[in-house]
């Protein structure tokens, strides 16, 4: 059985957010919820200031606090290491969201894709309503609805349950890469089986010095970061007093 992991090469990542847009499309993610997200950091103070960009997603931790804490086992581990959520079992206690050290679990506070369900036209007699637009393209709640998501999870998760990244388990089970990996224009995301020493992820983890988010917590995240993007140069100097 493979153990899936992802490497994010921060030197290749240009911060274009294509991963986040691809994720929303692939998983029918509603407004206000981010399966794929980013942390932006600034270092220094003006005028000596830099901007850093770090993509984030569910870390599919080996020792996942969300799985341990879920009272109904709605949050569970698959054999391939993916941390999966079953909305049918979810009671909406939000403990996983409270417990996640990485801030990557979100709660459906409201009816998902509410805007698209609106049947009132923007301009009466001139434009169609969002609901009509959805109907016109035979969408389901949203015009860009992806029915493939339904293979392992409700296509759109209902109000009152949490949701998060699944490493696109509906794609990986068919031998496809997660859609954020597929969509990355600079190949900054590398996905594969960490148990296989010949996989790309294993090779890269051996080649660079990877780090993971909040490693000290012992959660064993399976999203690794390598390298860093910094084209700045400076004259060799020993400083001075």
């Amino acid at each position: 059985m493979p153990r899936y992991a992802m490497i994010i090469d921060l030197q290749r990542c240009v911060g274009c957010s294509a991963c986040s847009i691809a994720c929303r499309n692939e998983n029918n993610v509603t407004d206000g919820i981010y399966w794929s997200n980013k942390i932006t950091q600034t270092s220094g103070t003006f005028p000596n200031v830099r901007y850093h960009y770090m993509p984030t997603l569910c870390n599919h931790c080996q020792n996942a606090p969300c799985v341990r804490g879920c009272p109904t086992q709605a949050m569970h581990k698959l054999d391939n290491g993916i941390t999966m959520h079953d909305p049918k079992k979810c009671i909406g206690c939000k403990y996983c969201e409270f417990n996640c050290p990485y801030g990557v679990i979100y709660f459906n506070w409201d009816t998902p894709h509410k805007t698209w369900r609106n049947s009132r036209p923007l301009i009466k007699g001139a434009t169609s309503s969002p609901a009509e637009e959805v109907k016109k393209v035979r969408g389901k709640a949203i015009p860009y609805y992806n029915p493939e998501r339904e293979a392992t999870l409700p296509g759109i998760r209902p109000r009152g349950v949490v949701e998060k990244c699944t490493f696109c388990d509906h794609r990986t089970r068919k031998g496809n890469l997660p859609y954020c990996v597929e969509a990355c224009p600079s190949d900054a995301r590398i996905f594969g089986d960490i148990n296989d020493p010949n996989s790309e992820v294993s090779k890269l983890l051996g080649k660079f010095r990877p780090f993971r988010l909040r490693e000290q917590l012992g959660t064993e995240p399976h999203v690794f970061y390598i390298r860093d993007f910094n084209p700045a140069n400076y004259q060799p100097s020993k400083g001075g007093i």
């Binding site: 341990r68 804490g69 879920c70 009272p71 109904t72 086992q73 079992k89 009671i91 206690c93 403990y95």
Partner: peptide, 24 residues
């Protein structure tokens, strides 16, 4: 929780490592 049945479901679907389950 927003649903009374969720309280009942919490009771019958144990996760022994979850303090929330134990509380319920």
């Amino acid at each position: 929780l927003g649903n009374v049945f969720h309280m009942i479901y919490n009771f019958i679907s144990p996760n022994f490592s979850s303090p929330i389950w134990w509380i319920g």
